[in-house]
Nucleic acid binder design. Structure first.
Length: 262
DNA sequence: ATGGTCGACTCTCGA
């Protein structure tokens, strides 16, 4: 059987239902990890999601952040947040097991500016993810770290990167790409890049840049990262740009990957 | 890596 996983920063699930529901019907992914749902738990549109044939696990708050996992199969071992310190976590992390695959769904802090405290918070966040992987999981198991990681890992992952590889941004900076590398060194493979070495493959186009899609002014900051054994089962990965072309789209568009099990 | 637009919420913040 094959198992398709998607990740999508929807930038408010309630504002995106007109695109999300028809997309679920058409793309029929087994699992969808959502970020920036921007909805408190009591207002999550669970009934409409169930009507589309998906169970939902979610953790959110008013206005900001929020993550959810939608699944056509049973969702087990749902956990949210880190348990490495006493700080109250924002709703940016949700883990679950579906069909024997562990899903780690994250909305990594964007960082605001290179000199803003949130940038240091972002860098620390990668350390916390690394510790979570070490403490709870093993690179020998089938695990996916997916979500809006707010990192363009290489120059071809940001639109100006091949022209000005040294131009810096909170999502494209040696400190950030190194931080991501250190988490991936635990044992994760970029499932999309393995299948698509070509440039101009972006999951995010800023609302403020007119004609950005046509001009290919985007970012690849959403990712599906797999442990080695699972990565070997990945038969395809792709970015679905159609939801980004709809009326009132999210600025991000879905990234999907299919895994084959014999 | 700019300037610009969106979403949620009260008009400004976060991205």
């Amino acid at each position: 059987m094959s198992f398709t996983v998607a990740t999508w920063n929807v930038n408010s699930i309630r504002a995106r239902m007109h695109i999300l529901l028809p997309w679920l019907d058409e793309a029929k992914p087994d699992v969808v990890c959502l970020q920036e749902t921007k909805v408190p738990n009591e207002a999550f549109p669970a009934e409409a999601i169930e009507g589309a044939g998906y169970q939902a696990a979610f953790r959110g708050q008013k206005s900001y952040n929020g993550v959810a996992i939608l699944s056509r199969h049973d969702i087990q071992d749902i956990r949210s947040g880190f348990d490495d310190d006493g700080e109250p976590d924002e709703p940016r992390l949700l883990t679950a097991t579906i069909h024997g695959i562990t899903l780690v769904n994250t909305y990594v802090p964007q960082g605001r500016d290179l000199d803003h405290p949130m940038f240091e918070y972002k860098l620390e966040w990668f350390g916390r993810i690394r510790r979570l992987l070490e403490e709870r999981f093993s690179p020998a198991e089938d695990l996916l770290w997916v979500g809006d990681l707010n990192v363009a890992p290489t120059p071809i992952d940001v639109w100006w990167g091949t022209q000005k590889p040294d131009a810096e941004h909170v999502c494209y900076h040696p400190r950030v790409t190194d931080a991501l590398d250190r988490v991936m060194a635990w044992g994760l493979v970029d499932a999309f890049r393995t299948h698509h070495p070509e440039p101009d493959q972006y999951t995010y186009y800023d609302y403020r840049a007119k004609g950005a899609i046509e001009a290919r002014k985007g970012w690849r900051i959403d990712h599906i990262l797999a442990t080695a054994g699972l990565a070997e089962r990945c038969s395809d990965a792709w970015i679905d740009l159609e939801p980004r072309r709809k009326v009132k789209p999210s600025d991000h568009t879905p990234l999907l990957a299919t895994f084959d099990f014999s």
